[in-house]
Computed example of a mutant assay.
Amino acid sequence: MGSLFEELEAREAAARARVEELEAELAEISGKLDTAREGLERLRIARETVVEVLAEMTPEGSAVSVKSRETSAAQGVAPAYAGVERRVVGVLTVPNWQPGMGVDVLPSVYRDIVEVVADAPGPVRAKQIVPRIELPAETGKIEGTRSKLKRLVERG
């Protein structure tokens, strides 16, 4: 009978160890849950603050606000956004080309790029344009110039 009691004690010790492991995991997960709840609360406060700021920035009754409300209602956006009017922050830097339009409508960087391309005897690469518009020949500047070239081509 001694071996049965020894087996029960061994199993009890293993169960006790497992309980202690699970309690440690629970404490760790509880800490993560608290951190996640704090992050959620910060985001909620930030959203409410943005709603208040946007409401103060735009005059009431504008066509944009009516359109935003209709779009929000159609998309099922949360009621917290119902009265908020949106202001367009971004702009179209390279307008679509129309007959009679010159390079003077472009931002200065784009005008410089167009000037370099126009003065070139043949095709040019973004890598060749960057030093001519007085930018450092770094990968980031070359890629930025390449995207500007693509934007100019897309817009005609």
Rank of each mutant, 00 (worst) to 15 (best):
V117I: 11
V117R: 04
V117P: 03
V117K: 04
V117Q: 02
A118V: 04
A118Y: 09
A118M: 06
A118H: 12
A118T: 12
A118D: 09
D119K: 09
D119F: 05
D119P: 02
D119E: 14
D119L: 09
A120E: 03
A120Q: 03
A120G: 03
A120F: 02
A120W: 03
P121H: 01
P121E: 08
P121K: 07
P121Q: 08
P121Y: 01
G122R: 06
G122N: 07
P123T: 07
P123K: 10
P123W: 01
P123D: 09
V124D: 02
V124M: 08
V124R: 07
R125G: 04
R125S: 11
A126M: 00
K127L: 13
K127Y: 11
K127G: 03
Q128W: 01
Q128I: 02
Q128F: 01
Q128N: 05
I129D: 00
I129L: 02
I129F: 01
I129W: 02
I129K: 00
V130G: 02
V130Y: 02
V130E: 01
V130N: 01
V130F: 03
P131T: 11
P131A: 08
P131S: 08
P131F: 05
P131L: 08
R132K: 15
R132A: 12
R132L: 15
R132F: 10
R132H: 11
R132N: 06
I133S: 05
I133L: 09
E134T: 15
E134H: 15
E134S: 15
E134F: 14
E134I: 09
L135C: 04
L135P: 00
L135F: 11
L135Q: 12
L135I: 05
L135V: 06
P136F: 03
P136G: 08
A137D: 14
A137Y: 12
A137P: 04
E138A: 12
E138P: 02
E138L: 15
T139I: 09
T139F: 10
G140W: 07
G140V: 12
G140Y: 06
K141L: 10
K141S: 10
I142H: 02
I142M: 01
I142L: 00
I142E: 00
I142Q: 01
I142V: 14
E143N: 11
G144L: 07
G144T: 07
G144F: 02
G144A: 11
G144R: 07
G144C: 06
T145I: 03
R146Q: 07
R146L: 06
R146N: 03
R146K: 08
S147K: 12
S147I: 09
S147A: 10
S147D: 13
K148C: 09
K148Y: 14
K148F: 11
K148N: 10
K148Q: 13
L149G: 02
L149P: 03
L149F: 04
L149I: 12
L149C: 13
K150F: 12
K150L: 13
K150T: 15
K150M: 13
K150N: 13
K150Q: 14
K150W: 07
R151S: 14
R151Q: 15
R151C: 11
R151L: 14
L152K: 06
L152I: 05
L152P: 06
L152R: 05
V153H: 15
V153A: 14
V153F: 13
V153G: 07
V153L: 14
V153N: 13
